[in-house]
Amino acid sequence: MKLHYEVPGDDFTRAGDASGDVKRRLKRLGFPPDVIRRAAIAIYEGEINMVIHAGGGTADIEIMPDRITAVLSDNGPGIPDVEKAMQEGWSTAPDNIRALGFGAGMGLPNIRKYSDSLNIDTAVGKGTTLTITVLANPAQQ
């Protein structure tokens, strides 16, 4: 099952809609709670990042019985130092976003923590594409 979402960059109040929809679907599809939680949080963090840093982007989700793959793509500023961005607590979010409780520097670290594989393809000035995979172990269902 393939799903495509446009993540708008101009409306912060809608950030989280895409991951929310994916979560609802995974529940109805009967994935194990732990898999749903990991996938939903990883996609949510990626979605929020696109809204905060890149003026929005697109989310392409593929749901398969054994895995959930999310490709989050934006045409934002790119990440100059990926290693630093992966450190817990490192954040370049503006103050108005921090006031909402975001920008704690846990976005990318959380995606890595909750996913089974994370690939970051980024170029300064061009954009960033994250490919996130969460494995579902059918034996546990």
Partner: peptide, 20 residues
């Protein structure tokens, strides 16, 4: 314990077909 009364089918494959 979770009661999966909202899930579409027991098997994920079947549920995906139904969701389609």
């Amino acid at each position: 314990e979770f009661a999966p009364v909202m899930t579409l089918a027991e098997k994920v494959e079947d549920a995906m077909r139904i969701m389609d």
